[in-house]
Design a binder for these strands. Structure first.
Lengths: 202, 202
DNA sequence: CAGCAAAACGGACCGTGGTCCGTTTTGATT
DNA sequence: AATCAAAACGGACCACGGTCCGTTTTGCTG
């Protein structure tokens, strides 16, 4: 909710680009708050661009200028929770955060990601390409898993192996398995651990 | 292009539900042909419901009655090529079709799937949920891989392992890797073979 | 062939995402 | 304080997906 226009920047590193005008900043937070209010009041479906504009008391054009598109707005919304999660992974308590051994961290990571994705499934879907992919969550996760695999002494094309581990946790696949085929979440998690075991080579 | 209203039915098995009226059938093929013409003439983007209706010389309502939605129409379009591919896998020449040993079939399958998905990337994307998932391609692929894994003597939760093998070949992931991160297709394939090796345990 | 009910047709109509451009706000400069 | 250019604003406007309902076609039945 306090993102800068350029998205989450964990190390601010004094931006070179011109700052935001005050009205622009004011409207950004008004819009995000309005959108959030709409989301957990009427569901993601109800978050219509006109509705958000009205709820925030601004013109429709403003919404698009700030967030590019509906997907962009959804991505911004997603970013809020994603950033918290990211912080938990990078600097929270073990075994998700640093401190535990890499294998335990990996398993915990998988479980946590699974839950998070399922929890935000509809928001992720609404965010489309602007969401998990091309942005925060995705590249961060790849980086993190890649790092854990390295720590575990895995050899091979690490970026690709990381993606292989992450792909079955993507929203569309999970959606299909849980909502349509009715798989138990617990079973999916066990399956993922098995996959990790095979990839890591234990 | 010659799909029945219920989609591809490889064994016709004398449908119990009432047949299609002649005008309906005529319009279905007219619409599919019109859509196909538009696709490879102006690209998927240009396939607007109004445009298809106009091109086929029917009313817009008819398009929706036949295909439910734009995604449904795209899925129907996809189905054409998917069905051919499916046939090649099930009864074409080895090593993709039956005859080769399971490992070789699996590798060939991966390669073929990779190419196919990339080739139809935009159509798949336009088909959304109605496309690969919940339909022909997806469940067929899972089934096939599951079967090959079984043949290879792999033990464990086979449906889940099959999904793990298929997930990295899904369109959004491939799109990201190839179009955005600029990975070489050859590299992705090598990575997939490595993944298969680890899962199968060679 | 006439009559009829069911099914299909077609296009007017609506909501929503997205664009455009004339008007207003902001903040730097004198 | 007065001025001004850059940036932001807002809402009219457009295109496209999707629905609805009065009209037409189909193919049965007598």
């Amino acid at each position: 909710m306090s993102d800068t226009p350029q998205g989450p920047r964990l190390l601010p590193l004094l931006d070179a680009l011109p700052p935001e005008r005050r009205d622009a900043a004011r409207n950004r937070v008004a819009l995000l708050q309005a959108a959030e209010r709409l989301v957990d009041h009427c569901g993601v479906e109800a978050v219509t661009m006109d509705a958000v504009a009205a709820e925030a008391g601004v013109g429709k054009g403003t919404v698009f200028r700030r967030f590019e598109s509906r997907e962009g707005l959804m991505a911004a919304l997603l970013n809020h929770s994603e950033t918290e999660w990211q912080a938990a992974v990078m600097s929270g308590p073990p075994p998700l955060g640093p401190g535990a051994d890499p294998w335990e961290r990996l398993i915990t990571f998988g479980h946590s990601r699974l839950e998070t994705v399922l929890h935000h499934a509809d928001l992720i879907r609404a965010a489309g390409r602007a969401g998990s992919r091309s942005y925060a969550a995705y590249s961060f996760s790849v980086m993190h898993v890649r790092y854990l695999l390295h720590d575990l002494g895995v050899t091979g094309d690490l970026p690709l192996l990381a993606v292989a581990l992450l792909a079955p946790l993507e929203a569309p696949i999970l959606d299909q398995q849980v909502r349509i085929e009715g798989f138990d979440v617990e079973r999916i998690h066990r399956g993922w651990v098995d996959l990790a075991r095979r990839i890591v080579g234990r």
